[in-house]
Amino acid sequence: MAKKLRVLIAKPGLDGHDRGAKVIARSLRDAGMEVIYTGLRQTPEMIAEAALQEDVDAVGLSVLSGAHMALVPRLLEKLRGQGQDHVAVLLGGIIPDEDIPLLKEMGVAAIFGPGANTEAIIRAFQEAVAASPKAV
């Protein structure tokens, strides 16, 4: 059987608006992926642990609160600390332009703002997973 992409869609932090995350989850499902959705108000620790147990290929984060510069590095650090270096991390939400180069430098594979095309997001997940080092 062909390997199915497994993706975790998570909302870290305190903002309570997950419509965007659900739209993305649905689009990825329709593209044939298995999408684990964990709901609102997740800490980076919770997300990293869920990613580990579910052995996902990628994590998609939705952050609307402006706390991405605090949350994303903590998640990346947790993932790496657990040996999950191969997990691609993508980010969506309200991310100011000046933060984008910094986030990419930290290792975020792709970043999408409001109104991003879902086809492009699906492709970004597929490409990010293809490009990331495979777990042995």
Binding site: G32, I36, E49
Partner: peptide
Amino acid sequence: SGGAILGDRIRMRDLAGDPGIFIRS
């Protein structure tokens, strides 16, 4: 599509952070 939304973890967030528990969707 063969895809799936696996949402059972939403109801199990109380269990996060406990190393004695392993959840797999």
